[in-house]
Design a protein around this nucleic acid. Structure first.
Lengths: 194, 194
DNA sequence: ATACTGAGTTACCGAATGGTAACCGGCTCA
DNA sequence: TGAGCCGGTTACCATTCGGTAACTCAGTAT
């Protein structure tokens, strides 16, 4: 049945397959047997590459998080002003969502947030996005409120994406990004000092 | 140890205690024994009031969802124009979050989204919020995009709340609501027909 | 030929957990 | 006073699932 693969190749394949399985069934809903079967091997093989189910899951969160981070960083690096930074950031975000539905569901789908260890990893990811957003609020405002608003903006993208992914259909990320970023930018400009 | 309660009283107490336990440990992380112990009874008592663990959880989602819905509906009923509708809606939302941390975490914390059945229940709740938001986008725009933007706005509140609840401290819901609703309203006004 | 390497399998264990059958004991009312 | 209602308990079962020890077997280098 199963092709014999080199260790690194098998590891990659397992990560690939596990993302699919976890995204669809969740951490608790997916058993190691399920993943092994989907990968065309047996359980002990998984344990040759990952110490535990948790480690496998954590590795996935890490990897998917990196993909997201990298995409956004690359996209916004070119921007000079806040407005285009906003536009490019959202575009990168929605493009990522559009072609990594499984990744989105793994991180934000969720069920990952239930576990303290996983939740921390995911919070780190959203916190990074928020840190990129915070400076776009130009007005003088309480630091803690600025952080909260930044997280709200991140939630904006998440809320839209959850629906889009939930619909199951493909969507045009650039079109969505244009509208959402327009909303976000206008909103950010409207924040006033108290 | 355990006080002898009437059936309806016990049922209420179980719901109360279960919300606490589930909110903190998640659906899978909390065992029926945990809940029974927290309620000061034994497992079979739970099964006298709820058919299964899932039914108990579902009942909680339903109840918490109703509280949220009711609060928002009551608050926005008095509003005449879109702007104050937005303000009052967000204020009701954040007030609910502020005094029902456990409820918020149960619905959006989450882990509830992992299960199809639970996810549907929660989607229904956010979809209702979105339906209230959608008419605030006055411009002529594709219906599906309008829906997506409405969900984005709901995500706005969720994103802010998740951070606030995550910090573990109490917060002033009205202050947050003022800022977030200002952001949302300005953002909604900025959506342009394509 | 032989011995080694390393990917993969079979078969199993132990713990946790959802759920249930059978029983208990105090209160109330005829 | 005794029957029965009802809230509650003890003790148990069945199953799932993470994790592991021991083994197989093909290729390869000597």
């Amino acid at each position: 049945m199963s092709q014999r693969l080199s260790a690194p190749a098998r590891r990659e394949q397992i990560l690939d397959v596990a993302l699919d399985v976890f995204a669809n069934a969740g951490f608790h809903g997916a058993s190691m047997n399920d993943i092994a079967e989907a990968a065309g091997v047996t359980k002990p093989v998984l344990y040759q590459h990952f110490d535990s189910k948790r480690h496998l899951y954590q590795a996935l969160i890490e990897e998917v998080g990196n993909r997201l981070r990298t995409n956004i960083d690359k996209a916004t690096a070119e921007a000079t002003d806040g407005k285009s930074q906003t536009e490019l950031g959202f575009r990168a975000y929605f493009r990522w969502v559009a072609d990594d539905h499984d990744g989105f569901r793994l991180l934000f789908g969720s069920g990952s947030r239930r576990d303290d260890e996983f939740n921390d990893a995911i919070r780190k990811i959203t916190a990074e996005s928020a840190r990129a957003v915070a400076p776009l609020i130009a007005v003088d405002i309480d630091e803690s409120h600025r952080e909260t608003l930044a997280h709200a903006i991140v939630g904006l993208a998440e809320g839209a994406s959850r629906r889009l992914v939930g619909l199951g259909q493909d969507f045009d990320p650039d079109a969505i990004a244009a509208e959402v970023s327009a909303l976000a930018w206008a909103g950010l400009r409207a924040v006033t000092p108290r």
